[in-house]
Simulated scan of single mutants.
Amino acid sequence: MSFGLLTGLLCGALLGFVMQRGRFCLTGGFRDMYIAKDNRMFYALLIAIAVQSVGVYTLISLGVFEFTTGTISLLAVIAGSFIFGIGIIFAGGCATGTWYRAGEGLVGSWMALAGYMLVAAMMRTGPLAPIDTKLKSYEVGNNSMAATFGVSPWILIAILVVIVAFIVYRELKKPKVKIPSLKPKKTGLAHVLFEKRWNPFVTATLIGVIATLAWPLSVATGRMGGLGITTPSANILQFLVTGDISFVNWGVFLVLGVFFGSMFAAKMSGEFRFRMPDVKTGLNSFSGGLMMGFGASLAGGCSIGNGLVMTAMMTWSGWISLVFMILGTWTASYFVFVRPRKKAQAARSEAVTA
């Protein structure tokens, strides 16, 4: 095992630790935008995107590595992202969220991971590969937003940074809501790392830095890309089935690192415990994982690969995917949460007036 691959484990462990302690859940964030009208987690995602965008394009400008956006398969991105958005509601977490929740001992997330890895592998080299190839063959043009507008990527990055800075300023100006907390059991750094509630904007900044760090570490091993969850997850299953060591790369160690980093954080903060879902929740988790695997593979990325990384690279696929992921999440949220609640309220009203 080379040191380069171990950097994937380290990077993933940092990501899993930060996401677990910061409760960085994009599924809940997208859902809350619709149900609770709470945009803070979405704003946190924008911060992570902006930090990574500045960091990665600085590295590109310094000649650390080169990056090409390629073309965009619009139909695959739209359909896959929408299906993925539906899947994360049923699974109870996005791809990365499922990995870190699995590290907390949530058995339902293990079930979601099983479905996710299975279909992702089937889309790559299994019986679903022809569907994946066919839908991705409809390419519509350059994937670079900067090339489309005929400007430097830095212009788009500057616009994003200004928008994010304004959002952060506006949010920080709002009156703070005091949240009751238990008397601290830890002191000093231990209290900050394992007990204190993390600010989502600070968490997002750390994730942006980790996402930036992932690029040179990954490229150094011959893997062109930053954070990515879907392909590495499929690679794990393919390796277990075939024994082909070529499937084990930096990305595989990254996702394993997310699991172990989250487990360490959960253990140290007293949040680790095995939780067995009921039958309905287990089935929902597995079916959600199946949809996640299909959607993310078709779209060319999950909420991290497209929603965090490819958005930061100023690609059409990243931003279009993010929009349709959110729309898929809202659609599923309506049928899973809003519609049943409305029916229950209507039934109670009829019972009162009867």
Rank of each mutant, 00 (worst) to 15 (best):
G55M: 12
L46C: 03
A351M: 15
I72R: 10
G141I: 10
K174S: 06
L240D: 01
S285Q: 12
I83E: 05
A76Y: 07
G108E: 06
W250K: 09
V119S: 07
A346Y: 05
R223L: 04
L128W: 03
F201I: 13
G228K: 11
A102F: 14
M41D: 07
F84E: 09
I207P: 01
A165Y: 10
A299L: 07
L254G: 01
W198I: 08
G318I: 08
G80M: 13
A120I: 06
D32V: 07
C11L: 15
V336Q: 11
T230P: 02
A354W: 07
F264K: 04
V338N: 01
G222Y: 01
F166M: 10
A95L: 06
M224H: 10
F30Q: 12
G28F: 10
N142I: 03
T187K: 15
L74S: 04
V161W: 02
N235S: 05
T329M: 12
L156M: 13
M263L: 07
G22C: 14
T148E: 00
A48N: 04
L308P: 00
F264S: 08
V18T: 13
P130K: 14
G251D: 11
E104V: 02
D38T: 10
I207D: 02
L74I: 12
A48E: 05
P232K: 06
G115Q: 05
L240G: 02
V151C: 06
S246F: 03
V177A: 15
A129E: 06
A354Y: 10
P180L: 10
S2W: 09
S109C: 09
K267D: 01
G300P: 04
L46Y: 03
T69G: 01
R101A: 10
A354H: 11
